[in-house]
Design a protein around this nucleic acid. Structure first.
Lengths: 138, 138
DNA sequence: TCCTACAATAGACATTGTCTAAAGCAAGCG
DNA sequence: CGCTTGCTTTAGACAATGTCTATTGTAGGA
């Protein structure tokens, strides 16, 4: 069984079949699923789960910091279970596939104070775009 | 009259009142408007313009490379008329304000070949997030 | 001026996400 | 072990954003 479920239980999360299924889907897949894809996989394990529950549960997982929300295109949010190691994303412009990547250097340091306009800058998100080997072959 | 309109005309863009109005809205504002905001401003100048036309025209401007599509949140695409100087964005996590920024260095170079997974990487998009002076004061 | 191909329009449709009111159920308590 | 309570789930309506289609309009060349 997963660490994720253990952690959630430890935080007093009320465990239900639906929540377990959603957590399992995320824990099992190391790709970045959309809410709808999570729903589809959850339905396969628990046919009566509703869309609203999947959305709710994903939202809670994000709030708890167990899952990251990534929006690399404007179509649908994707959910990244790899919330505990900082990383950035490489997105295929054609099929939308996402890989986690770890660039060298610290992009936060690349923004000089003169370019911060008084903002307190706390985060940086880097999205590389290109074409994946699959799409390039097609 | 704007450079933008001149350039478009020079490229054989068929000029219509609707397209002129959309181009003027983008050219006049140096903030990053959503499609709906562009529509609202366009309607103020040309009441009978339709939503579809605004979407189409924005799409064409993006294709022509005159305007950039930016999605800093997952709610709505925003349109950035400043397409001719590469830049990145600094977003206020509270009010959603966006500033263009110019970090030093080239983040594309920060992604080693071993982290490219066979992708042909052509673009990089950096989004800094923080709190703007206004929101920090409040 | 007239024609024709390209553009605009209204509104239906699609996708993604949110909300609500009612019914269900986990887990603590006796 | 079986209540009770309050958190969860559910179905489906609703909302926001974007896309498509068939029809009508029109810019610009002949």
């Amino acid at each position: 069984m997963s660490d994720l479920l253990e952690r959630l239980r430890g935080r007093g999360w009320r465990m239900t079949a639906q929540r377990r299924v959603v957590a399992e889907v995320l824990d099992g897949e190391h790709v970045h699923l959309t809410a709808d894809e999570v729903h589809a996989r959850a339905v396969a394990k628990l046919p009566e789960i509703s869309r609203a529950t999947v959305y709710n549960t994903l939202g809670e997982l994000v709030t708890l910091g167990e899952v990251l929300e990534v929006s690399t295109d404007q179509r649908a949010k994707r959910y990244d279970p790899n919330a505990h190691r900082p990383h950035h994303h490489l997105v295929c412009a054609q099929c939308g596939a996402i890989r986690d990547v770890h660039p060298v250097g610290n992009p936060l340091a690349d923004l000089p104070a003169s370019e911060r306009f008084g903002f307190t800058v706390s985060e940086v998100e880097v999205t590389y775009r290109g074409v994946c080997p699959n799409c390039a072959a097609a």
